[in-house]
């Protein structure tokens, strides 16, 4: 069974989707990710979709689900690297991916996650304290 690998980078999880997802693969990714967030206590999830050429309403729903589920588990989800054509199509389709944060690339996504977490935890808490807790 094919699987989408989930990489752990400190407090974040990184998923790079390289293939066009068929439904079961996407559903597996959803449940794998939620379990990983729970297991690692990750505070953020980055989903890199720069290689994805099509997002239909099903994929859009999966992304929305992941964002909502991880939110419940106290982790923010950022979708990074969306292709312009995909963005235009999603808007035309009527699917603005509410609740999903987005960033231009992985680096910007990391920045966004850091700032969101800092905001939640209060400005005083910096990275060092965080690492010692982990």
């Amino acid at each position: 069974m094919e699987k989408i690998p989930i990489l752990r980078m400190g407090r974040f999880l990184l998923v790079t989707i390289q293939v066009d997802l068929y439904d079961r693969l996407a559903e597996n990714l959803e449940s794998d990710l939620v379990h990983m967030v729970r297991k690692t206590g990750a505070r953020g999830v980055l989903i890199d979709i720069s290689a994805v050429s099509i997002i239909d309403s099903f994929m859009g729903r999966i992304l929305g689900n992941i964002a909502m589920m991880t939110k419940v588990l106290d982790a923010e989800t950022v979708v990074v690297g969306m292709q312009p054509a995909v963005a235009i199509t999603l808007i035309e389709l009527g699917l603005p991916l509410k609740g999903v944060h987005s960033a231009l690339n992985v680096e910007r996504g990391m920045e966004l996650l850091r700032s969101k977490i800092a905001l939640q935890d209060g400005e005083s808490q910096d990275d060092d304290i965080y690492h010692s807790i982990e």
Partner: peptide, 10 residues
């Protein structure tokens, strides 16, 4: 292309 393929996919 993307619009067509997305519609097809739906």
């Amino acid at each position: 292309q993307t619009k067509l393929i997305t519609a097809a996919s739906e």
